[in-house]
Protein backbone atom coordinates (compact mmCIF):
# COMPACT_ATOMS: atom_id res chain seq x y z
CA UNK A 1 0.00 0.00 0.00
CA UNK A 2 0.99 3.62 -0.46
CA UNK A 3 2.31 5.19 2.73
CA UNK A 4 0.91 8.51 3.88
CA UNK A 5 4.21 10.21 3.08
CA UNK A 6 4.21 8.78 -0.44
CA UNK A 7 0.67 9.93 -0.99
CA UNK A 8 1.51 13.45 0.18
CA UNK A 9 4.55 13.59 -2.11
CA UNK A 10 2.57 12.50 -5.15
CA UNK A 11 -0.38 14.74 -4.31
CA UNK A 12 1.87 17.75 -3.84
CA UNK A 13 3.22 17.39 -7.37
CA UNK A 14 -0.32 16.86 -8.64
CA UNK A 15 -1.67 19.97 -6.87
CA UNK A 16 1.26 22.02 -8.15
CA UNK A 17 0.46 20.88 -11.69
CA UNK A 18 -3.27 21.52 -11.32
CA UNK A 19 -2.94 24.95 -9.70
CA UNK A 20 0.33 25.85 -11.48
CA UNK A 21 1.90 26.94 -8.23
CA UNK A 22 5.32 25.48 -7.52
CA UNK A 23 5.33 26.69 -3.91
CA UNK A 24 2.14 24.87 -2.94
CA UNK A 25 2.44 22.80 0.25
CA UNK A 26 -0.22 20.39 1.40
CA UNK A 27 -1.47 20.03 4.96
CA UNK A 28 -4.22 17.72 6.24
CA UNK A 29 -6.56 20.63 6.90
CA UNK A 30 -6.06 22.36 3.54
CA UNK A 31 -9.38 22.68 1.69
CA UNK A 32 -11.10 24.46 -1.17
CA UNK A 33 -11.75 27.62 0.85
CA UNK A 34 -8.01 28.10 1.44
CA UNK A 35 -6.90 27.94 -2.17
CA UNK A 36 -7.74 30.47 -4.80
CA UNK A 37 -9.15 28.79 -7.90
CA UNK A 38 -10.12 25.55 -6.14
CA UNK A 39 -13.60 25.36 -7.63
CA UNK A 40 -15.79 22.36 -8.44
CA UNK A 41 -13.94 21.75 -11.72
CA UNK A 42 -10.57 21.71 -10.00
CA UNK A 43 -12.06 19.39 -7.41
CA UNK A 44 -13.00 16.98 -10.23
CA UNK A 45 -9.51 17.27 -11.71
CA UNK A 46 -7.99 16.38 -8.34
CA UNK A 47 -10.29 13.38 -7.98
CA UNK A 48 -9.79 12.13 -11.55
CA UNK A 49 -6.03 12.59 -11.38
CA UNK A 50 -5.92 10.70 -8.09
CA UNK A 51 -8.01 7.87 -9.51
CA UNK A 52 -5.69 7.66 -12.50
CA UNK A 53 -2.53 7.92 -10.42
CA UNK A 54 -3.44 5.13 -7.97
CA UNK A 55 -5.72 3.08 -10.22
CA UNK A 56 -8.64 3.46 -7.83
CA UNK A 57 -12.25 4.58 -8.09
CA UNK A 58 -14.09 6.76 -5.58
CA UNK A 59 -17.74 6.13 -4.85
CA UNK A 60 -20.26 8.96 -5.10
CA UNK A 61 -20.79 8.99 -1.32
CA UNK A 62 -17.07 9.15 -0.72
CA UNK A 63 -16.72 12.15 -2.99
CA UNK A 64 -19.61 13.87 -1.24
CA UNK A 65 -17.87 13.48 2.11
CA UNK A 66 -14.53 14.81 0.88
CA UNK A 67 -13.72 18.00 2.85
CA UNK A 68 -9.96 18.39 2.96
CA UNK A 69 -6.62 17.13 1.75
CA UNK A 70 -6.47 14.97 4.89
CA UNK A 71 -9.73 13.25 3.89
CA UNK A 72 -8.37 12.60 0.38
CA UNK A 73 -5.11 11.16 1.70
CA UNK A 74 -6.95 8.88 4.11
CA UNK A 75 -9.27 7.68 1.36
CA UNK A 76 -6.40 6.94 -1.03
CA UNK A 77 -4.61 5.14 1.77
CA UNK A 78 -7.63 2.94 2.46
CA UNK A 79 -8.20 2.13 -1.21
CA UNK A 80 -4.60 1.19 -1.88
CA UNK A 81 -4.36 -0.91 1.27
Amino acid sequence: MASEAEIYTALTEMFRDIFQRDDMELTPTLNARDVQGWDSFKQIEIVMASEERWGIKFRTRELDSLQSVGDLVAMIGRKTA
Partner: peptide, 12 residues
Amino acid sequence: IGFVLVNALDET
Protein backbone atom coordinates in the same frame (compact mmCIF):
# COMPACT_ATOMS: atom_id res chain seq x y z
CA ILE B 1 0.91 14.48 -21.41
CA GLY B 2 -2.28 13.75 -19.52
CA PHE B 3 -5.21 16.07 -18.96
CA VAL B 4 -3.71 17.90 -15.98
CA LEU B 5 -0.63 18.96 -17.90
CA VAL B 6 -2.69 19.69 -21.01
CA ASN B 7 -4.66 22.16 -18.90
CA ALA B 8 -1.45 23.59 -17.46
CA LEU B 9 0.03 24.06 -20.92
CA ASP B 10 -3.16 25.69 -22.14
CA GLU B 11 -3.03 28.19 -19.28
CA THR B 12 0.54 29.10 -20.18
